[in-house]
Design a protein around this nucleic acid. Structure first.
Length: 255
DNA sequence: ATGGTAGCCTTGCTA
């Protein structure tokens, strides 16, 4: 089973690229982030015509997450558990062919010293609590999405450029490490030891042309899922196209 | 150099 995650930065602006990616890559499951549209405005018909079912948690203008799959989707959560007051659409979870899969869009958190950064850390705390509860199940678990956290220095072109950024703060990175310590595995890093493999390049300052990116889109696998991990990679092709998303898909294959 | 680009549908906000 091939599972891909992709922050599309507006599903309507990227619909052509998305349909092309489905045809070229034939993923079994696709985790989408930053839909930037309401649930009822999601281009469901076009996705279904491409052979995929959809579970969607949209939001006007910002955020929004979805899960696409060739097989039946049994939705197990809409919204990240742990705070009924949180109205931001950043988490959707489902059972597909016996695997628990989530598409998540963690808060960016900039600028530092604001409630946005506090929200980022609080959201990651909630994610850790929920991720730990999922480990109690015997099902394989795949938590994929835009974590908005750079794990290590080897995952950024120049750490000095990111000193004051929420994506590179020690507390942000510690939150991601806690997920790993709880038992989850970074699928890409487990299969590819090469440094400087990026999933995001800023639109500004020619970052793509200079290959100055960061790796912030991750597929975290529970131990049972990691036992089935046979391949993982980053597909840079969608980022080469005209009017591309600033992120490109990351994928893994489970036996 | 506090620059630069993209998508929202607000002419600023978020990233």
């Amino acid at each position: 089973m091939k599972i891909a995650t992709w922050n599309v930065n507006s599903v309507k602006a990227r619909l052509g690229h998305l349909v092309q990616f489905l045809a070229d890559s034939s993923p079994d499951v696709v985790l989408l982030q930053e839909l930037k549209c309401r649930t009822e405005d999601f281009p469901r018909l076009e996705i279904e015509a491409a052979g995929y079912r959809c579970a969607v948690l949209g939001q006007k203008s910002y955020n929004g997450v979805a899960i696409l799959a060739r097989e039946a989707i049994d939705c197990t959560a809409e919204g990240l558990p742990g705070d009924p007051e949180d109205v931001q659409s950043r988490y959707i979870e489902a059972r597909i062919a016996g695997i628990r899969v989530a598409s998540l869009y963690a808060p960016n958190g900039n600028p530092l010293g604001t409630e946005k950064y506090a929200y980022k850390l609080a959201w990651m705390d909630r994610l850790e609590r929920h991720a730990r509860s999922l480990l109690a199940s015997e099902e394989p678990v795949v938590l994929g999405g835009d974590y908005n956290i750079i794990p290590e220095a080897e995952d950024v072109y120049d750490p000095a450029d990111w000193t004051g950024d929420a994506l590179w703060q020690p507390a942000s990175r510690a939150a991601l490490r806690r997920l790993l310590w709880s038992g989850y595995t970074d699928a890409f890093r487990a299969m590819d030891p090469r440094p400087h493999q990026y999933s995001f390049w800023d639109y500004q300052a020619g970052r793509w042309q200079r290959n100055e990116g960061i790796r912030i889109d991750h597929l975290l696998l529970s131990p049972v899922a990691t036992d089935r991990l046979v391949a993982a990679g980053i597909d840079r092709t969608p980022r080469t196209r005209e009017k591309a998303s600033d992120h490109t898909p990351v994928w893994c294959e489970l036996s």
